[in-house]
Computed example of a mutant assay.
Amino acid sequence: MNIVITGGTGMVGSKLTNHLLHKGHHVYILTRNASNKQNTRQLTYVKWLGHNSSPEKYLPTVDAVINLAGASISQRWTPSYKALIRDSRIEATREVIRIINSLPSKPEVLINASAIGYYGTSKTNTFTEESKPIKADFLHRVCKEWENEAAAAKSEGVRVVYARFGLILANKEGALSKMVLPYYLFIGGPLGTGDQWYSWVHVTDVINMIAFAVEHQHVCGPINVTAPSPERMHSFGKQLANTLQKPHWLPTPAFAVRAALGEMSTLILDGQKVLPEKPLQSGYTFSYPSLHTALDNLFDK
């Protein structure tokens, strides 16, 4: 297949690119800085979102588009940065739709990133792909608008999948690299009340689930990219501590986390119990369905 990826140099995008190359696909990465990248027989960098850039002129017949572009949410949410979180996703997705519209032969599928923040936060509700959002907070509004932009591809006959990512676990990258630091300093413990849900997923399953959605035409609409066994924060921290052979003992009160991180603290202190009902019903098999197997793999136990 010829597969186009935006956000291809990020944590998920780079691992996904390697996975697809290993499977024999040709990957076209849309990037703002294509001139300083080295093309290979199977990997081509194409400039986009620049002055007078027209990436569609440099693309062959495309089988799939995977849109992962967007500014990181793991940074303090000042008003200007919240605008960047939203605008980076909407701008990139609109350009993806423009490119699809301009291609003489349309891709079979668009996989568009989203997040479980779509549902809002809750300590009591369980969410599947069929669940209605319960809170119109910042992350919900961003995810809803993001998905609505991607939905425009359906008018071109393109199958659209909204990949609602949970807490992605990867060794030495992403959220987990920040979560382990207190444990290495022997000050790890529950954050806030400790009863908030973490709907986590091993990065390998993220990659495999995206590839599964590309390859299986019956997968469409929203899919929850989360493991089937979410954990409350206190249990998550205990299992992480056991894996690292460190204590889990020192609580950090919610007010201290909010003071340090501001509104972004909702990613740590709030949460939602999200289940991947549609991937399981579609025949996807998780490589790491439980937290202890995921952590053992990530830390080579």
Rank of each mutant, 00 (worst) to 15 (best):
P107Y: 11
A175S: 12
K132F: 10
S131P: 00
G157E: 08
T193D: 13
A153L: 02
S105Q: 15
V161P: 04
S102C: 09
F138G: 01
V158E: 11
L139N: 14
D195Y: 06
D87M: 07
Y119T: 03
K154P: 01
I97V: 11
I97W: 06
R141K: 14
E95D: 14
K154M: 01
D87E: 15
F186W: 08
Y183C: 03
Y184V: 08
T121L: 06
L185V: 00
G157V: 12
K178F: 04
I97N: 03
T93Y: 02
L139F: 06
L181Y: 09
Y184H: 15
L167S: 05
G157K: 07
E130C: 11
N148M: 09
G166A: 07
T121I: 04
A113L: 07
R141C: 01
E173T: 05
G174M: 11
E108W: 09
A150W: 07
E108M: 08
L169W: 08
F127A: 04
G166V: 04
G188Q: 02
E130V: 07
M179V: 00
P104C: 13
N148Y: 03
D87S: 12
A163K: 04
R141Q: 13
A92S: 15
Y184R: 14
E149K: 05
T128R: 02
A92D: 10
L167R: 07
K106V: 10
G188H: 02
I187V: 15
N171K: 09
P182S: 09
G117Y: 00
K123L: 15
V96Q: 06
R159I: 08
F138Y: 09
A170E: 14
S177V: 04
A92W: 06
H140P: 03
L103P: 06
L191I: 15
V160E: 13
K144G: 00
E147L: 02
A151C: 04
G117F: 00
A175E: 08
K123Y: 07
K144N: 02
I134F: 10
G157P: 05
F165W: 00
F127E: 14
G166T: 08
L176N: 08
T124K: 14
T193V: 10
I85A: 10
V180N: 01
P107M: 15
R94L: 12
V96H: 09
V96R: 03
A152W: 01
L191G: 13
Y183R: 01
A83N: 13
A92R: 11
R86P: 02
N171W: 05
L185P: 00
E149D: 05
V161I: 05
T193F: 13
K154D: 01
Y183S: 11
R159K: 07
P190K: 14
E173N: 03
L169N: 09
K123I: 12
A83S: 11
